[in-house]
């Protein structure tokens, strides 16, 4: 009962925040509303006792991905009015895509459910149940190759991103930090011993 009430509250906030993401006039506000979305999605996962996934969602998306998003969006001086110029022109195409996505969602949620008896809600898990251990056990046995493959794809993406942005320009004066760090006091400072002078 309490879980149901909480679900509707958080789901409502989630939908509201998601609408806010696309309706907010300021891109920074959009990003922050998206963060709110992720939080509410994490809470929904917590409600079905998937605590590992919930915390990882917050850790990865809120803690890392959205920080970088915010970082970039804050630095751009985006003119929202100009972005909205094409709104009416592109509206029919967008509506078409939205309808297709809605139909697909409906197919997955409703049509394929016919004949399959889904339980309402999930049964509470036993007290000593460890969500983390269970996911780990599946991830490193049944799904070990897809998991490794995903890791390699991400690694390639990282290397590619660095290769795209790394530029060597000739004639640029740069600091050699390794050399700077390796400097010892004896290289720069000469200590002189001298007798103290008497005031005249």
């Amino acid at each position: 009962m309490l879980v149901n009430i909480l679900f509707w509250i958080y789901a409502a906030v989630l939908v509201g925040a998601a609408l806010g993401v696309i309706l907010a006039r300021n891109p920074v506000h959009s990003v922050l509303l998206l963060v709110l979305c992720f939080f509410n999605a994490a809470v929904l996962w917590l409600l079905i006792e998937a605590e590992f996934l919930a915390i990882v969602l917050v850790l990865v998306y809120v803690g890392a991905v959205m920080v970088l998003f915010l970082f970039v969006v804050m630095m751009l001086d985006i003119n929202v009015e100009r972005l909205r110029e094409g709104f009416v022109r592109n509206a029919p195409l967008a509506a078409l895509i939205a309808v297709i996505v809605a139909i697909e969602l409906g197919y997955v949620l409703w049509v394929r459910r016919l004949g399959v008896e889904l339980p309402a809600g999930t049964a509470p898990l036993p007290a000593g149940h460890s969500n983390t251990a269970e996911i780990g056990a599946v991830l490193y046995t049944d799904f070990v190759w897809p998991f490794q493959l995903a890791a390699i794809v991400l690694l390639i993406a990282i290397v590619a991103a660095i290769a795209l942005t790394l530029r060597h320009r000739p004639g640029v004066r740069q600091q050699n930090i390794g050399q700077q760090v390796a400097v010892r006091p004896a290289d720069r400072v000469r200590l002189v011993r001298m007798k103290s002078e008497r005031e005249p």
Binding site: L59, V62, A64, V67, T132
Partner: peptide, 21 residues
């Protein structure tokens, strides 16, 4: 909490938002 360490990591990564905002 079962995933206490992750919870901590997630929370400590939140503080940066306050600074950025």
């Amino acid at each position: 909490v079962d995933a206490g360490l992750l919870f901590l990591l997630a929370l400590t990564s939140m503080g940066v938002y306050g600074v950025i905002i």
